[in-house]
Every structure is written in structure tokens, then in C-alpha cells.
Simulated scan of single mutants.
Amino acid sequence: MNKTIYIIRHCKATGQAPDAPLTKKGKEQAKELAAFLSDKNVHRIISSPFLRAVQTIEPFAAEANLKLETDNRLQERVLSSVSMPDWLEKLEATYKDFNLKYEGGESSSEATERIIDAVNDLCASDAENSIIVGHGGIISLLLHHYNQNAGIDSWRKLSNPDVYALQISGHDYQLRRIWVEA
């Protein structure tokens, strides 16, 4: 069976905290995203439980009359539980060494495994076309899984929102960016 998973990065948000809501612009983007997705014949929606991710897909879920599920495996990757003024350099290092792990955080390998588990569960489900909504860090690791050339630069190039289509047919897959910023 052929499956398409739309991988969505959340719209513009007020911050990084789990309860950070979308900005006014982010709410407008969520409506634009709903219109963009309207012809995709989606059967299932799974989102990070973080408020900005849920708010990103709520307009589409309401229009499509689909249940919005949340899954902790789609929440943003925690780089560290301690403040790191040089966090960007530390993040870059985790794209070079996927087993590198900072205090209270998870390695790129661990975070990749968790989002791949969520994707594999979707592939095993009856849903032909589905959506996952997440965050830049975790999504960039998913993109890297399917395209080894995608790394820190892929993370830098992600927009808010952003949409990729992952088409899977047996063991074959195709990943392409389909969002065009307005």
C-alpha cells in the first residue's frame, strides 16, 4: 500500500516552552495551512502535544472533521536541561556525532529513533494519507534519516510553518518539500 505522510513544522510561535502559543501571524499561517492541506485527502492527524503544534493543525482538523491525536514522540528534542549560551555550536556538534549527548538531553540518535517509531506506527496503520506536526529540531532529524545530506543546514532552512511530503511504497520512499512560503 502507498502511504503519504505530511510532515509539518508548526507555525510562528511566541516561544519555545511547551505551552507557548502561536503568535497572531502564526494563527493566520495556521488558516493558510488548512487551506493548503484541504485537497490532501488526509485520514489521520498526529501532533506534538506542545501547544504551538496543536494550534498549528487545529484549523485543518476542524475543517476536515478529523480527530487530532497527540504523541509525545513528536515533541521537540531536548538538547540539554542546563542553559548553554553556546547552544548553537552544541547543536551543530550533535549533527556531526549522533551519539553526542548533553546533560539532561537526548542524542540525535535517540531523538531520531523516537520520531522514526512514530512514522513506522503510522505506516503500519490503515491511514493512507496522514499528518504529523512537530518542531524544527526533531523534524530536521527525520529529514536526515531519509536524506543523509540533510543536517544542521536543513534545520536552518526550515520555515514556520513548513511542509514535506514523505511518500512510502514498500521499501521505497520519496521525500520532498511541498510548502511554498507566501
Rank of each mutant, 00 (worst) to 15 (best):
W179F: 14
D121L: 12
I7G: 01
E106R: 02
I46C: 06
W155D: 02
L141S: 00
T94F: 07
S107G: 08
V163R: 02
R77V: 08
D71L: 06
I152F: 15
N99A: 05
S38C: 12
R44M: 11
E113S: 13
I139L: 11
N120A: 14
R44A: 01
N147W: 05
K27R: 15
I139D: 02
G136M: 03
K40M: 14
E28L: 13
W179R: 05
H135Q: 05
S125P: 14
R114I: 03
N65K: 15
T4W: 06
A62R: 14
S48A: 09
D97F: 00
E103A: 13
K12W: 00
Q167V: 14
G15L: 04
D71R: 05
L22T: 02
I178C: 09
S169H: 12
I8R: 06
M1L: 10
H145L: 00
F98N: 05
Q16L: 15
E113K: 15
R73E: 04
S109A: 14
L88S: 02
I132Q: 04
N72L: 08
S169C: 10
E181G: 00
T4V: 11
H144K: 14
I8F: 03
E106A: 09
Q29W: 10
K101V: 14
A93R: 14
L51T: 12
V78C: 07
Q148S: 13
H171C: 12
H10C: 05
G134I: 02
T23Y: 00
N160S: 07
A62N: 12
G170V: 07
H135E: 07
L33M: 07
M1S: 12
V42Y: 03
T4E: 12
V180R: 13
K27Q: 15
C123F: 13
H10R: 01
Q148I: 04
N120V: 05
E63Y: 01
P21R: 01
A118I: 08
E92K: 15
A127H: 10
I131K: 05
G15D: 08
V180N: 14
I5Y: 01
I132Y: 03
T23P: 12
L166T: 02
L166Q: 05
A34Q: 04
V119L: 12
